[in-house]
Computed example of a mutant assay.
Amino acid sequence: MKGVDRRIFCTDLTDRSAIFGGAKELEKLLRERAEAGAKLIFAVTACVPGIIGDDVEGVCARVSSETGAEIIPVLTDGIMNGGATQGRDIAYAAICRLVDMSVRPEENTVNLIGYAEEPDRGFRKADECMKLIGGLGLNINCRFLHENTADEVRMLKKGGINLMYRSSLACRKEAGCLEKLTGIPFYPDAMPVGIRQTEEWIEGFGSFMKVPEERRKALSAEFRKEFDELSGKYRDALAGSTCLIYVVTTSEIGWLMEILGVLGMKAVGICCPTENRWSMVDRRSVEGLGVPVEYDVDFDRLREKISSEKPDCLIGSSIMISRAEIPHIYISRPLPGVAGGFEFAKRLVRMAQVSRL
């Protein structure tokens, strides 16, 4: 699975195959890959094999028995097996067939679920995940799924608990799916972002893992010191300016409000395009902020808000902000820790300087 982008091969079914069946093409390709030295092959179906009823499982079993390669069918054709959401679950189930269920958890060892390397170099350098986990005296067994080898997946149960790297419904669903398939429980709170979340997570997860109190306090103090030092660098850099926030979810903006407080920038409103379970709206997370919140805000309503509130800039996690006629900056949830929030602060200050807010 490592370097999977260079290890994807296709049967390239033709119109004739779609009429008379594509089993021959599949068998030919599987044998070619096995003869080339592949020890593990996932045969993932698209729509056509599902429509015409190809016996993918039978072909995989036959070629596997004759070549010795481990071939796992992943029936995600979208015809008999549902859509993208079901396909994701089917893929996890297929991958988890590799997990050695006899492996015992190692002490102070965890898995990271939903990990993906940040493509932005600045934010990638601000990832403090290892500082958080290592600071509690814990080790990471597997970053699932991130360019894993088959052996890394087989040893997944060395991690006694799964940690969600990101806070999203998809990541939470993945963690729940893995718990059902492998028996590895997941910690309910995702890796933290911002100083308040970080301090609470260190205390909560540290206590859960029976990390000594003095170690938990020392790590919290280290992050608090980092936050205070970075705050000093950006304190009141945008004092007197205002912004309107347009985010997909209100459940993950605590870190943003912390950064705006440091910068001295006032939020005149928080808007969300939808309010449903997929956007993970959390009204409690914005209570007490003193900032008006409005849900189900489409772009026309957003323009009305911009016209009435007259903010200096728009901060948002929806691509619709690119249509705004005022300075705007896109945000996503920073990586774990406190440094990622200040990477955003640096970019917001730079935008303000260019836009002469």
Rank of each mutant, 00 (worst) to 15 (best):
I8M: 13
R16C: 01
L26Y: 06
L30H: 11
E32A: 05
A38L: 01
C47E: 12
I51F: 04
I52P: 00
I52M: 07
G53Y: 08
E57K: 13
I90V: 04
Y92Q: 14
A94P: 11
M101I: 12
S102E: 15
P105E: 14
E106G: 06
E107Y: 00
G114W: 08
E128G: 05
I133F: 05
G135N: 04
G137N: 09
R143L: 10
R154V: 05
G160L: 09
M164R: 01
K173N: 14
E179D: 08
D189M: 12
R216W: 02
A218N: 09
S220Q: 15
A221G: 13
R224S: 14
K225A: 13
F227V: 04
S231H: 07
A239Y: 08
C243R: 05
L244T: 03
V248F: 07
T250Y: 10
W255L: 01
E258G: 04
V262M: 07
G264L: 05
V268Y: 05
C271E: 14
T274Q: 01
M280I: 07
G288D: 13
P292A: 08
Y295F: 12
R301S: 11
R303Y: 03
K305D: 10
S307Y: 07
D312K: 06
I321W: 02
S332R: 11
P334N: 02
A339H: 06
G340L: 04
Q353D: 14
Q353K: 15
